[in-house]
C-alpha cells in the first residue's frame, strides 16, 4: 500500500518538477507513437475501406487475417523488425536498428491491423446504409470508399485513438528494436521496464501514472472534440 502512496507522490513530483529528462522521454514517446499512428492510418484506413467496399477473391481471408492480427504480440513484431533491420538482415544496410525510426516501423506494423480492422467495420456499416444512394448518384466503388472514409471520420478517429493507445502502451517491440538507449530510444514504457528491473518500483509506477495520465488527457481531448463534431454534423 505504501508503494502506491509513494508512487502517487513521486508521480506528482515528476510532473511538477518538469524534469527535463522526463520531458525528453515523454516527447520521444509521443513522437514515435504519433508517427506510427499516422503511418498506420495511411496504410490501414484505405485497406479497411477497400475491404469494406471492394469485392475481390481472397477478401474474406484477408479480413480474417487482419482481424486476427489485431492481437499481434508486440515481442514477435519487435523480433521480426529486429531481424529485418539487423545488420545481418535484409534491410541491414540502412543502419536503422536502435533508432526511433525502427521503433516507428515496429509500432506501425503492430497497429496497422487494428486500425484497418476497425475501419473496415465502421465503413462496412456505413456502406450498408448508404451504398444504394451513392451508386444511384453514380459513385464508382473507389469513389464511394473515399466518400465514406470522409463521412465516418469521427468514428474512424476513435479507431486511430485505439491504435495510439496500443502503440504508446506497448514495451515489447520498442525494447527490442530501440534498445532502450538513454537519450536516443528511451521512451516511457522502456523507462518503466528499466526502473522495474532496478527494483525502484515506486518510480516505475510513478512513470506509469504519468503515462496513463497522458493517454487519458489525449483521449479526453479527442472525446470532447468528437462530441462537438457529432453535435455539429450529426
Amino acid at each position: 500500500m505504501s508503494t502506491l502512496v509513494d508512487s502517487l507522490q513521486a508521480a506528482a513530483g515528476l510532473i511538477t518538477d518538469g524534469e527535463s529528462q522526463l520531458a525528453g522521454i515523454v516527447i520521444l514517446s509521443l513522437r514515435v507513437s504519433l508517427s506510427a499512428v499516422s503511418l498506420a492510418a495511411l496504410l490501414g484506413l484505405p485497406l479497411g475501406a477497400l475491404l469494406a467496399v471492394g469485392r475481390f477473391p481472397g477478401r474474406q481471408t484477408l479480413i480474417i487475417v487482419i482481424n486476427g492480427f489485431m492481437g499481434l504480440p508486440p515481442v514477435v513484431v519487435g523480433l521480426l523488425v529486429y531481424l529485418l533491420l539487423s545488420r545481418a538482415g535484409p534491410l541491414g544496410t540502412f543502419g536503422l536498428l536502435f533508432t526511433p525510426t525502427a521503433m516507428i516501423v515496429a509500432q506501425t506494423l503492430l497497429i496497422t491491423p487494428i486500425i484497418a480492422a476497425l475501419a473496415r467495420q465502421i465503413i462496412a456499416d456505413a456502406w450498408a446504409e448508404t451504398h444504394e444512394q451513392l451508386r444511384s448518384l453514380g459513385a464508382a466503388p473507389w469513389r464511394a470508399a473515399l466518400t465514406l472514409l470522409w463521412d465516418t471520420r469521427f468514428s474512424l478517429f476513435t479507431a486511430l485513438l485505439a491504435g495510439f493507445g496500443r502503440a504508446a502502451a506497448e514495451v515489447g517491440a520498442v525494447m527490442i528494436v530501440g534498445g532502450n538507449i538513454d537519450g536516443v530510444t528511451r521512451v516511457m514504457t522502456t523507462t518503466i521496464a528499466l526502473e522495474t528491473s532496478k527494483g525502484d518500483l515506486p518510480l516505475a509506477l510513478a512513470l506509469g501514472l504519468v503515462l496513463i495520465t497522458l493517454v487519458l488527457a489525449l483521449n479526453t481531448a479527442a472525446h470532447l472534440m468528437r462530441q462537438w463534431a457529432m453535435r455539429r454534423y450529426g
Binding site: 504519433l34 508517427s35 499516422s38 503511418l39 495511411l42 525510426t101
Partner: peptide, 25 residues
C-alpha cells in the same frame, strides 16, 4: 485542417533521428 494534421504528423515521422554524427553502439 484534417489534412494539415496528417501532414504534420508525417513530418514528425520523417524527422531525422536526433542529429549526432559521431556515435558508436
Amino acid at each position: 485542417n484534417f489534412l494539415a494534421g496528417i501532414a504534420g504528423a508525417l513530418w514528425l515521422a520523417t524527422l531525422p533521428a536526433l542529429a549526432e554524427d559521431k556515435f558508436i553502439v
